Simulated scan of single mutants.
Amino acid sequence: MPKLDYGDRANVADSAGIDLRPGALVWVVGVFSDRPSGSYFKKFPAGVVYSVEYEDGTSTEIHEDQLVRLEDT
């Protein structure tokens, strides 16, 4: 079960690779619980992969272990 949902805000974990911008604020724009077939998603470990958008409008896919959900305030 995904720990994040569409529209959730999160921070990229400090342990994430530099190319993922550790500490950056992102919004979840896609959730891949059941991954599509193909080689792209094979590079991620088992688990949920998210499409996220950064504040500057760029986007990427990131594994659930590399995201920290922001608490609702």
Rank of each mutant, 00 (worst) to 15 (best):
M1I: 05
P2M: 00
P2K: 03
D5R: 14
Y6G: 02
G7P: 01
G7V: 12
D8E: 10
D8K: 10
D8H: 15
D8A: 07
R9A: 03
R9W: 11
R9I: 05
A10D: 03
A10T: 10
A10Y: 03
N11R: 15
V12Y: 10
A13E: 11
D14I: 01
A16I: 04
G17D: 12
G17H: 01
L20H: 06
P22V: 06
P22L: 08
A24H: 07
L25W: 08
L25M: 10
W27D: 04
V28Q: 10
V29M: 14
V29N: 15
V31S: 01
V31G: 01
F32M: 11
S33V: 15
D34Q: 14
D34E: 15
R35A: 05
S37F: 07
S37Y: 06
G38Y: 14
S39H: 14
S39R: 15
F41Y: 15
K42Y: 05
K43L: 06
F44Q: 06
F44E: 02
A46W: 04
A46I: 09
G47R: 08
V49Y: 04
V49R: 00
V49C: 08
Y50C: 04
Y50F: 13
S51F: 05
V52F: 05
E53W: 04
Y54A: 02
E55I: 08
D56S: 09
D56W: 12
G57S: 07
G57P: 11
T58H: 11
S59G: 09
T60M: 12
T60I: 09
I62M: 12
D65E: 14
D65F: 01
D65R: 13
Q66H: 13
Q66G: 00
L67A: 05
V68E: 14
V68H: 06
R69N: 00
E71R: 15
E71W: 06
D72T: 08
D72A: 12
D72Y: 13
T73Y: 08
T73S: 08
